[in-house]
């Protein structure tokens, strides 16, 4: 038994099941996510880890016929309750996507757009942009061309811009859906470093198909297989002493 502490999960799912029509995406998943921790969701492709991630800030709403049962609690509130405005929710639970997807606008506008819609004070925005870009380790590279198109940046820079865009909303949770899968190794290692510094301020959930990456960046790991959660726990324990045979098979490369 873990000692009872004063640490409550920022976000948790309780017996969460996501279905597309009749097809089950994930089934009966219960995980808790804590402040200042990076949680990695790993598993072979098609195991439902991205589906699960998108259900944490209701990005699944845009998929037709999606059906959700079970609960997702964010700071104690059920995010699928009809009284919740999903747009407000997403301001607190930001997301970084698999492929860099900057708006076809300037670098400045990319970051400023969200805060403007959320009615952040106008005078605050230039500082906010600098802070976000600094946190995303992009400031020095783009400070002289803030008003040029974001599409002129390299893939790795675009992805860091997307991270800056997400953290400019001052979210408390950051969801990352295979953020490095479209990037080269150098860009990948920069983003991994970035995750380490960001975790001081945010609850981070990252989906990755790369086990080494999960081992490097995460504190807690959850292993998904065929839409089910096989096991979750401290990353060190999962990678050294997995409890389940499926986890061990996956980690030793027997399948996946």
């Amino acid at each position: 038994m873990l000692p009872v502490t004063n640490v409550f999960p920022k976000l948790l799912t309780d017996k969460l099941t996501v279905k597309y029509g009749e097809k089950v995406g994930v089934e009966n998943i219960s995980i808790k996510f804590f402040d200042s921790k990076v949680t990695a969701l790993i598993g072979p492709s098609g195991c439902g880890k991205s589906t699960y991630l998108r259900s944490l800030n209701r990005m699944n709403d845009f998929i037709p016929n999606v059906k959700i049962t079970g609960k997702v609690l964010f700071s104690g509130q059920d995010i699928y309750d009809s009284s919740i405005d999903p747009a407000l929710l997403r301001r607190h639970i930001g997301m970084v996507f698999q492929k860099p997807n900057p708006f076809p606008k300037t670098i400045f506008e990319n970051i400023a757009w969200g805060p403007k819609r959320a009615k952040f004070a106008k005078t605050e925005i230039p500082q906010l942009i600098e802070d976000s870009l600094r946190q995303a380790a992009l400031w020095d590279e783009v400070k002289d061309r803030l008003h040029t198109s974001a599409l002129g940046l390299s893939g790795g820079q675009q992805q860091r811009l997307c991270i800056a865009r997400a953290i400019a909303m001052r979210p408390s949770v950051l969801l990352m859906d295979e953020p490095c899968s479209a990037l080269d190794p150098i860009a990948t290692s920069r983003i991994e470093d970035l995750i380490q510094t960001l975790k001081e301020k945010y609850t981070i959930v990252i989906v990755t198909h790369n086990m080494q990456q999960a081992a490097r960046v995460s504190d807690i790991t959850a292993f998904f297989l065929n839409g089910k959660l096989v096991e979750s726990g401290e990353t060190k324990q999962i990678f050294t002493l997995p409890k389940e045979i499926e986890t061990e098979n996956y980690l030793t490369g027997k399948f996946g």
Binding site: N101, R117, A166
Partner: peptide, 18 residues
């Protein structure tokens, strides 16, 4: 119009109209 642009905008808390 690519879906990714819509998702990016929804991701920072925009409403459908925005």
């Amino acid at each position: 119009v690519p879906l990714s642009i819509r998702l990016a905008a929804f991701g920072v808390g925009a409403s459908p109209r925005q």
